[in-house]
Amino acid sequence: MDGPAIAPRDAALSIRGLRKAFGGQPVYSGFDLDVRRGDILAIFGPNGCGKSTLINMAAGLLPVDGGTILYDGRDVRDVRVGYVFQNYREALFPWLRAADNIRYPLRRMGLPKREIEARLDRLKAEFRVRFDLARYPYELSGGQQQLVSVMRALAVEPEVLFLDEPFSALDFETTLDLRALLQDVLKRLGVTTLLVSHDLEESIALADRLLMLTRRPTTVADDLAVRLAWPRGSATLSEPDFVALKRRCLAVFEAAVAGRPVAA
């Protein structure tokens, strides 16, 4: 493992002794993880290894059976988090216009109207939004809807952003565009991000650090720093460093799931 050692004060998120079981089947039994402030951590692993379970517990959407998940010593309820769901169609509120979807968490925070509008304008500029946010989500393309989801998650200026396979429902071209836009904004704003992905290439391309998980009960198969230069465009994907990293990850992945058939 060449995962960087993280001093406690640099950690945005610390998980200690995490335990979780479904129907008596342990998924996590004593899992530890520290995430450095400002890092994009990609979590990659075989189907059913509990990638989404991990971030759902971290986001406070799923109770833990044991252990602690702390944000600089605080519980998730006292922390601003953003969450982007895989299925944007079921995550946005279709009865609200796109702009009102983005305003929603800000209204929940009780921000004054002027501050809400200022943040909305800032986000529009950050993401260079050219489509009409006065439309309803279902009037937008899939990529635009997921972009609205991302803006809604970032509107609260989260201390940690969770992305649960944010591109898996999008076509390839849209994925490339949105991925480039997202890495640009996340790096510029320095948002601590946990990205769950089942796409190895995407995980490497977007991450500062890649966590590879094994089958259940889940442990860390490998934890490696991704030291490729930013910004990472499509050219990055064919650079020797990238290719070498991907080859190593594939070997780790195959070892991690060895002995069991890999689900399609």
Binding site: G60, L61, Y83, F85, N87, A91, F93, Y104, R108, R152
Partner: peptide, 14 residues
């Protein structure tokens, strides 16, 4: 009701 929407509202502090 779609469970994802309920979770989305919860994570946004509702």
């Amino acid at each position: 009701a779609r469970r994802t929407r309920v979770l989305a509202a919860r994570v946004m502090g509702a």
